[in-house]
Amino acid sequence: MKNPMIQVKNLIYDYLISKNEDEEPERHRAIDDVTLTVETGDFIAILGHNGSGKSTFAKQINVLLKPTSGTLIVGGMDTADEKNLLPIRQTAGMVFQNPDNQIIATIVEEDVGFGPENIGVPTDEIWKRVEKSLSSVGMLHYRKHSPNRLSGGQKQRVAIAGVMAMKPDCIVLDEPTAMLDPAGRKDVIATVRELNEKENVTVILITHYMDEVVFADKVFVMDAGRIALQGTPREVFSQVEKLKEIGLDVPQVTELAHELKEEGLPLPDGILTPEEFREEIEKLWQSSAEMSPTSILKEADLKSRLSIRSI
């Protein structure tokens, strides 16, 4: 049995805000008693509105922050232990929101090679890694380009390649698509999914976009520093009302299916994609067209549940 990639137990994190020098700093609880496990090779999504604690949590995985109390084990290493700092950062790489803040070199391949070079990887090996990482994000063709001339989505893929060149077991992406256009978003998400499927990299994706998480193995929804909901995307998105209460959206087709169901159409819970929606409606349509007079009772029932308004 393989070990879990990340184990979190009763994690609490308090920010200290000092307004005045002579006053006792104020405590603000950003993460409030979170316990969860991420299995190796999983694709995990974390949702939550601004200020829900999700980015603070991401920073804990990369040891940019340490727990106030509780424990966080990444790849078998406790983040509270100083000597684990570098090994953990090599195990769990991080990609941030703004592509422009993450690229430092003037040529794409040099940017990707920066990480391995920093940890003393031999030159031959660096070039191998650069080539492999760039091809895994579909950017090998741009290796000699200047990062400045790339689109936002391409820059994010270069940033991901930079993390991949460190051969991490896990990548944490903190809203990697927030600043991208639809095409850029799709490319980045497709790249991340491929790394997860082909290279077996554990992925932790933090996002506002619900349509990006429908492929995740597991979704955690954070609210006020706690895990408010967790489960498969289908389980989580079945709870449309609860998600709205928290201030989150569900994919548009999920919401449409939910509203139709409320009106009496017999649709399953948690429809996630346009394809699923179309299939379910099509099925319903065919069965309603083929219905024989003997099933009229059922039909009448459907009709009465369909609150038919005068149209």
Binding site: E263, L265, S288, M291, L306, I308
Partner: peptide, 29 residues
């Protein structure tokens, strides 16, 4: 399906789908 292809909001989609299924049920009645 007898729905129009120029629907752009959730509310329009919902109304159209409900209308289609309701019409179907009553025509078979």
């Amino acid at each position: 399906l007898p729905v129009s292809a120029d629907v752009i909001t959730l509310k329009q989609a919902k109304d159209q789908i409900l209308r289609v299924f309701a019409a179907n049920a009553s025509s078979r009645d």
